[in-house]
Amino acid sequence: MSFFPANDPAPGDAFACDAIAQVIVPRTSDIGGFAVRRALPSARRRMVGPFVFLDEMGPAEFKAGDGLDVRPHPHIGLATVTYLFEGEIFHRDSLGTAQAIRPGAVNWMSAGSGIAHSERTGAEHRHGGEPLHGLQCWVALPAAREESAPAFAHHDVTALPVEAAEGKTVRIVAGSLFGRTSPLVTASETLFADVTMEAGALLPLDPAAEERALYLVSGAVDIAGDRFEAGRLLVFRPGDRITVTALTPVRLAILGGAPMDGPRYIWWNFVSSRKDRIETAKADWKAGRFAAVPGESEFIPLPE
């Protein structure tokens, strides 16, 4: 996953539901015709559980010959999470991983002490043009795991459990929900799920995870009499049971988990509990001390 430049999110509309702590409106940036909406971090909310970063990329429709080309760049202290609704991205990293990700699958790259990777549209997917739409997240690693060895995990669409009933389909990408548990191994308690709902369907959310949020990708929902449209991150208060009612066909993501063990500093693609560690990472990338990505000759330079 890459750091797409985007403006900071803003506070959302007024709301009445006591269960909602914040409504965050992502700010949109246009990156060469490719829309990116940033929901985390925001001035009012830096993290939800271990999630320190949430971008919605697209939906976009690439023209024939075009595609995504994110050159190799570094990460430390986090796990990147890539989840697609449409299209395909080909991931390469300095561990030697070469893995395509498609809708319904997950790429989970734990940077630990340091990793570099690229994300591109494969040559075979550029001939006739292709859509791309998905979520890119960063999950902070616990302080004790920030310097762990880098690792990569991929789980295909068939490996992630799905609960489907009463007009809704829930794919559990990380953690446990509705009695189903993802095979994805995480460094701390983490919840991430992709939900689609028919109009009129109900989604009950128990307070199993201490920190929870809902990102509305498409459609409109009702929560305790308040209506919320697409492009909102709804952060819930701990301890409340919530019911989400779909007013239209809806797609949303549920995310959260246990609170992180202290604040995190973010600079460019680096996340750490220590400012000095970020300075070291900056110097290492500038000096070429990160391992290279096999098959790649380009890289994104350190921002000045």
Rank of each mutant, 00 (worst) to 15 (best):
M1Q: 03
S2R: 13
S2C: 11
F3L: 13
P5C: 11
D8W: 14
A10L: 15
A14V: 12
I20L: 06
V23C: 11
R38I: 06
P41K: 09
R46E: 14
P50L: 05
E61S: 15
E61A: 14
G65I: 10
G67L: 06
L68W: 04
V70Y: 05
V70A: 11
H73K: 03
P74S: 04
H75L: 06
I76K: 08
G77F: 04
A79P: 01
F85I: 00
F85E: 00
F90T: 07
H91G: 01
R92F: 08
D93W: 07
S94Y: 02
L95A: 04
G96H: 03
Q99G: 03
V106S: 04
W108R: 02
G112F: 05
S113D: 10
A116K: 01
S118G: 05
G129T: 09
P131R: 08
L132S: 04
L132V: 10
L132G: 10
H133M: 00
L141M: 07
E146W: 06
E146M: 10
S148W: 13
P150L: 10
F152G: 03
D156Q: 12
A159Y: 07
V162S: 06
A165L: 13
E166P: 00
E166A: 15
E166S: 15
L177Q: 05
G179H: 02
V185R: 07
V185A: 14
V185E: 09
L191Q: 06
F192V: 09
A193W: 03
D194C: 09
M197L: 15
P204F: 09
D206M: 09
L216C: 02
S218M: 03
G219K: 06
G219N: 03
G225D: 08
D226L: 10
D226P: 10
F228E: 01
G231F: 04
R232W: 03
V235F: 00
G239Y: 14
G239Q: 12
D240L: 15
V244I: 13
V244H: 02
V244N: 09
A246F: 06
A246K: 02
L247K: 05
L247Q: 10
L255M: 12
P259R: 06
M260D: 04
M260K: 00
P263N: 00
V271A: 02
S272Q: 05
S273I: 00
R274Q: 14
K275P: 00
R277D: 13
I278A: 01
T280D: 14
K282H: 11
D284R: 15
W285Y: 10
R289I: 10
R289K: 13
F290E: 02
A291L: 12
A292M: 09
F299V: 00
I300M: 15
